[in-house]
Amino acid sequence: MPAPTANLRSTFRRYRRTLRRFWATSLTAELEYQANFLIELLSVGGNLAGSIFLLSLFFANGRSLGGWSWEQALVVLGIYTLLDGITSTLLQPNLSTIVTHVRTGTLDFVLLKPIDSQFWLSARTVSPWGLPGVVLGLALIVVAAARSGATPDLLTVLSAALLLLSSTLILYALWFVLAATSIWFVKVWNATEVLRSALVAGRYPISAYPAALRTFFTVVLPVAFLTTVPAEAILGTGSARWLLASLVVAAAALAFSRWFWGFALRFYTSASS
């Protein structure tokens, strides 16, 4: 009988191999539509240009926005663009299918597969068309951070990477929990539109909002943890307390999504039953 660690390692290897197959096949399929790349590039570029112009309006006549300088606010916008790109690459293509699976009853087949169903539903496909957002977002973060005079040492880079990871996980958990409610409310896809439109608030540092909205965007909808907290870490103005809070929120959100999926499945009765 193998030791538990060896068992864990072989499971991990199996999932990694599966993931590679998943993504390789979906990339091959998607690359048939290459004109999409140009359209996505235009779309992301246009949206970014518009957002930068809009942001510049708040800095007219030497003003600042919620105590943030122009370059610092651009870092926040960069993180938003990056997360939006990740949403288009991974979250939307995968989680939009949960709704379809529930409606047509094909979720049965997913549940019967010898692999974790949450993993399958969350990682089955990858869409390369979100990559322009990822690349432009990263570029904006680096350029804006450099121009704002940030001097990243190894610790800053590590904590920034950690915080970006935790904001991605929080975002994933939000999307997944919302998509999982389709077990009860089949046509839930419009709810993700509501989520996406509310997350737009993450384009601006949280301190730019009035106190009541600030509380809402920290406690109810954790927009603050998505963009502002990582931006502070990149700029070297973050505190260990916020880093810890972000990690706790990410871990809690992930654990909740895990529990919620199990809970939702207890109510799944397949289609037409």
């Binding site: 708040f58 003003r63 419009n190 608030a201 601006y204 909002y209």
Partner: peptide, 26 residues
């Protein structure tokens, strides 16, 4: 109607922008 309610709710962008503009002197 449930979907249309969600559509209506997804038009909150001007209200979010109101939040940012009201905090700024611009």
């Amino acid at each position: 109607r449930a979907e249309i309610a969600l559509w209506a709710l997804s038009g909150v962008l001007p209200l979010i922008m109101l939040g940012v503009w009201s905090g700024s002197g611009a």
